[in-house]
Nucleic acid binder design. Structure first.
Lengths: 204, 204
DNA sequence: TTGACACCAGAACGTTCGTTCTCTACCATG
DNA sequence: CATGGTAGAGAACGAACGTTCTGGTGTCAA
């Protein structure tokens, strides 16, 4: 049983070539076209063979299908020969440019684009959490959070970034800087969103 | 760079909502489905109206077509709203469009894709610079750096992230953690690249 | 010499797709 | 009360699509 025996190595030698052509096409158009167009891309004339190729690439884990039956690339599709952190004495500055990097950061930080906002960080009240003035907070908008989350709350009509805590049954906002006081809101606490990522850009 | 200022305001007010739904769908499936499926995504029942919406989004520059007629996203599709610290008392979770700035994370951090590498940070030797274990360093590969830059150097066949300093005419690597020693390389110092950005992802 | 198999072409077929057209309900505005 | 624009529903249709089947090479080993 268990016939997932050959995940990475493609079963057919020419499949590597077809995969390369598909990757090139995808880099240009960011989509996998119809079987008919793939005939041109692959340089073959029969749709049935295109289907066989895609089925194999799917089985090998490079592409998968949406519920609609459309082919989409997997993470493995974008993997490239990657020099790990060994020696690398010769400084291979050029190497492969190619595709794939484009969405990676985005995809890593953002689950739900429509709920995600960037907010620049002002001040140093969270500096002990490694959040500096000028950093950019990636915030997912929602009004519920767990104790211990870093949240964006609305205090005095302004955004403030603090750790959500609880004290005697009431929510409090804890800075990560001993020079700042704990905020104990009277009344309800209005939470704008939860910190899901952080971005910092160093001047060039 | 990136001066696409005008085409943001969509012609129809509800288009912002449809765009958000499309962005969320794309974040999950990395493709734009058929009109029939978009009916479900958008919550409407007529394909003709879906087409009208996509035509408007295409005219506004968020999506475009391949030679095969497939819809694919443009760069603008991935732009994120950048919330300035205004008021926003009423928690308008859905609106998201129109006001504020937009930017694209990848473009902000990466100038030269072919020279840019991501390296996960290990250890806490730079913690006083707000660089934590598990953060991801965005590194631009080059072998020249200025004093004061945070650089990735190759020491003992391993990457290390430190601030570049100078001491008596020789380069040194300064950690940002008083518990770690300054590194004074004998011979030449091999610099892999310069830190240009930092990314942190908080667990959900 | 004969299978067996990988590789591919080509056609058939039922389904789905995108497009276009007509129609409706609902505001507004005047 | 007419008008016009918006926001959609729904049907119709030909073209395109994915799938399956059959058939035809070439190669290699038995």
């Amino acid at each position: 049983m268990t016939d997932f025996d050959t995940p990475l190595p493609e079963s057919n030698p020419k499949d590597a070539e077809y995969l390369a052509k598909l990757q090139d096409y995808y880099a240009e158009w960011k989509s996998i076209p119809s079987y008919a167009s793939l005939c041109e891309v692959f340089g073959i004339a029969s749709k049935s063979w295109v289907k066989a190729i895609l089925d194999r690439l799917g089985k090998a884990g490079f592409i998968e299908r949406t519920p609609d039956g459309m082919w989409i690339p997997t993470r493995q599709f974008f993997a490239r020969p990657f020099a790990e952190s060994s020696v690398q004495a010769g400084m291979p500055v050029s190497v492969s440019a190619t595709q794939g990097d484009y969405f990676i950061i985005d995809e890593m930080l953002i689950d739900t684009p429509s709920l995600t906002t960037m907010i620049p960080v002002k001040g140093d009240s969270m500096i002990e959490a490694g959040i500096h003035d000028g950093d950019i907070a990636v915030v997912e908008k929602r009004n519920l959070a767990n104790v211990g989350d870093i949240v964006v709350a609305i205090v005095d009509n302004d955004f403030t970034l603090k750790t959500l805590g609880k004290e005697g049954g009431r929510f409090i906002l804890r800075p990560a800087n001993s020079a700042y006081p704990v905020i104990r809101p009277q009344g309800s606490l209005e939470i704008f969103g939860v910190l899901v990522g952080l971005i910092r850009k160093y001047r060039k």
